[in-house]
Nucleic acid binder design. Structure first.
Lengths: 221, 221, 221, 221
DNA sequence: TATGAATGAGAGTTCATTCAT
DNA sequence: AATGAATGAACTCTCATTCAT
């Protein structure tokens, strides 16, 4: 007497959807978004048509992967924002995301790689709250320099992930060499030379990334 | 000191080659490496055939751009390595390359974006000497932490450029906010927490980047 | 010996069949036979599978619509053949069918548009008898020129419907301008110039139309 | 010493273009516009790419055929408008176009078949002048009923061509049976029953046909 | 040598039809 | 019996690369 949930995907459909997302992660990770949907589909062991039943087009699939990835990051952000010692939360967050990247090539690809504007918006929106909390707590605890903004955290993360991304499997832990360096830049008790450039307002930054990704992405014709 | 590439090409051929590289910079800058060679050729005012006379394929053209870009970087590296105060040389180098990226989207594309492995090798090889000098001098002058390697400079540069690249035209100077932060990490008199992870030997790093770029690049079928 | 369609379908099956035909009329009317069966099925509120239970393929469904349409035409033909004044019957028939076309785009589509050969055969066969009667009575009453054949009626109808079809919703009554003109051509007391070309035997014409429609139709691969 | 016209198409390109148009005429005639460009191209003995070099898409190709066809019709219309006896001109025109259709299936297909709105506009525009002259002269000569409009000529032509189209190769001359009938409807000295429906203004008719064809055509997305 | 026409593999996408649920 | 997920062939269009002019 399996309680049939009326709405959500038939069992086989759900399985295929998952297979597709998994395959896409792998294939995109290896060959980038330039890989064809045909390849992804066959990698997943299904026909192309099936891929199109689940995702309107290739980029919707990419978005789906992305969304999953962001879920993980979001969860970590929230956990970090609730850390006992604020500073530890910040470290945990940066370290954690960088670790994720190193472990999961698919994640790395979608987080750093070529993706689209709308998705970028979403990230900012979804991550914005926990990141702000992370920063607020850090400042109140006197651990974080007062002129640090939540967006700085994002940028630092990007820098860190770039290292993880660039060194890839060949030197998967090299980013750890640069994490302390970056943390030092955020710390309240740091030596001196304050960054004189003000941070960019959240929305401007968002737009910036948006246009950046747009160029890389040119979504659909 | 570049000893002229032997047979100096007929004057018009040389001109066409230059036109093509210039056009490619512009077109690739605007639409990425995905732009078609036809477009590049017409932008240069020549036929596609001519493009193929000068470059075996599209990626050879990209390489040519890259080589030019590297020339500029190399020149700056050499100038910086000869700076009166070693520390200033380091700052000048990092600042200079970041500035280049911000100014020239084409350069940004080829330096950070999608390009190929062989090229990467070349960069490392050509930049390796001046960067080592830069670092050596910095250490000897007591400005640079003793455990900094020349490859660290490359990584820092990459991090910085990532910022410039990501924020793009919308916040073209944001990277300046993070330059001091990164410099702090390299400085001899910094607060504390030494990066415990050793740097990666030059050749390993080179290979790492190589494989990274390979994934991004998938050099023609 | 096919006595009556035998097993009259379960009530709900019959209902689904009717829903499908109705939906097909509407959808085909709006978007032509190119509309997908999926769309038709959902428009009818059933799954595609159900559509295939009732109709072997898309064109069988079109045929079913067609059959219904022909039923209407047939009925009108029979009524017209029984008109008190034979001439009025002829006018009524031509006018009536043209009116149907104007009113129901779906009908127009299947009658004039893209359909198949077998269906065409059926039409001829089913309509042949009443049309012959219509013509016979007209001639006997001295209203119709003696060299008019029942097939002429079909051709005239086609000409008229072409007008209705071509002008469509924008000038839905324009065909009325040409009805008198065409009637004049059939009338016994017309001015002169007898058509010198003999009509074509029924079966030849049938075959002609058949091949015509075949070209237009390309019945599935 | 063939006077090489600088601009226009290289010899081989011109030949291929012609081959394509010819092939398209044949293929479209046989299987309608639903035939794939691949088929047309291979029928012409060239690659698909070549087809796309010459015509932006399938419908541009159809348009090209159409334009050629219209050229022929236009020429006839002009010749007919200049006939010594106006009435003969009218007969010649209707007869001529019907004959063209019978002879050239490709022409038939494009003229009567599925084509697009813009093209329809063009036809009206290009044919409008000679048809008006044809009608004017006919009326002045007392041969044509005074309430006949140039658009009536178009409609009559369509009716005639429909016959030629429908009967196709099987009864290629059947339309001749109906030409006198239709001519009678236009003649000044005809028996009586004047069409009471006024003709439709040129532009309304044009729009009507336009929307009609649009439905049939749904030109590319 | 320069040109641009030709080629054809391959990408994204749709849809008729089948079949597991 | 009904459903809708899966399939894959087919279609349109692009573009790197070759080759006739």
């Amino acid at each position: 007497m399996t309680e049939q949930k009326a709405r959500p995907l038939r069992k086989d459909a759900a399985r295929n959807r998952a297979l597709l997302v998994q395959a896409a992660r792998e294939v995109f990770a290896e060959r980038g978004l330039e890989a064809s949907l045909d390849d992804v589909a066959h990698h997943a062991g299904v026909g192309v048509g099936t891929a199109y039943r689940h995702f309107a087009n290739k980029y919707e699939l990419a978005r789906a992967i992305f969304a999953e990835a962001i879920d993980e990051v979001l969860e970590l952000a929230e956990r970090s924002a609730a850390a006992k010692k604020p500073w530890d939360g910040i470290v945990a967050f940066l370290e954690g995301v960088a670790e994720m990247q190193t472990t999961d090539r698919g994640l790395r690809e979608v987080l750093m790689g070529v993706h689209d504007a709308e998705q970028m918006e979403q990230v900012s929106e979804r991550l914005s709250a926990p990141l702000q909390q992370l920063v607020e707590r850090g400042k109140r605890a006197g651990a974080l320099r007062p002129d640090v903004e939540s967006t700085d955290l994002g940028i630092v993360l990007i820098m860190l992930c770039t290292v993880a991304d660039v060194t890839g499997d060949a030197a998967p832990d090299l980013w750890r060499r640069y994490l302390p360096m970056l943390l030092d830049g955020l710390r309240a008790d740091r030596r001196g030379s304050v960054p004189s450039v003000p941070p960019v307002p959240d929305d401007v930054l968002r737009k910036a990334m948006k246009s950046h990704k747009e160029r890389l992405f040119r979504a659909a014709r």
